[in-house]
Computed example of a mutant assay.
Amino acid sequence: MSHRAGRTRWRRFALILTPSVAACAALGIAMAQGALAASFLISGQRFQVNVDTLTIRGFSIYVMVDVTKKGERVPVMVTGARHATISGLCQSVPIDLPLLGPHTFKITGGDTRPATATNMFLDATTESVGQADFRDIDIGVAQGAITKGPIDPGDRNSRFFDPSGFGQQAVSATLTHVRVTAVAISAGTFNIPDLRLRIEKGHHECP
Rank of each mutant, 00 (worst) to 15 (best):
L97G: 04
S87Y: 03
D138N: 10
A14V: 12
L27G: 14
M1C: 13
K148R: 15
G144D: 02
T55Q: 08
F47E: 03
A14E: 15
I95T: 06
T147V: 14
G188R: 11
D133W: 12
F160G: 11
L99K: 14
I86V: 14
T108R: 09
T8R: 14
L97Y: 03
I42K: 05
C206V: 00
P98Q: 11
P94N: 05
D155M: 14
A81T: 03
I86S: 03
A124T: 13
A117C: 06
D152W: 01
G109R: 05
G6W: 11
P150N: 02
T8P: 00
I192T: 13
T126P: 07
V178P: 08
C90I: 07
P98W: 10
S43Y: 04
I95E: 01
V129S: 00
L41Q: 15
G80A: 02
T8D: 15
R46I: 13
E200I: 10
I139H: 06
Q169P: 08
V51W: 02
R11T: 15
S43N: 06
L175A: 00
K201C: 10
F121L: 04
L122A: 10
I95W: 05
P163C: 00
A115F: 03
C90K: 03
I139Q: 00
S43L: 01
E205N: 11
T189V: 09
N191L: 05
M77T: 12
R57Y: 11
I61P: 01
V183D: 04
L41I: 07
F47H: 00
F105D: 05
T118N: 11
A184I: 02
Q143K: 07
S164C: 03
P150Q: 03
S164I: 04
L100V: 04
T118E: 14
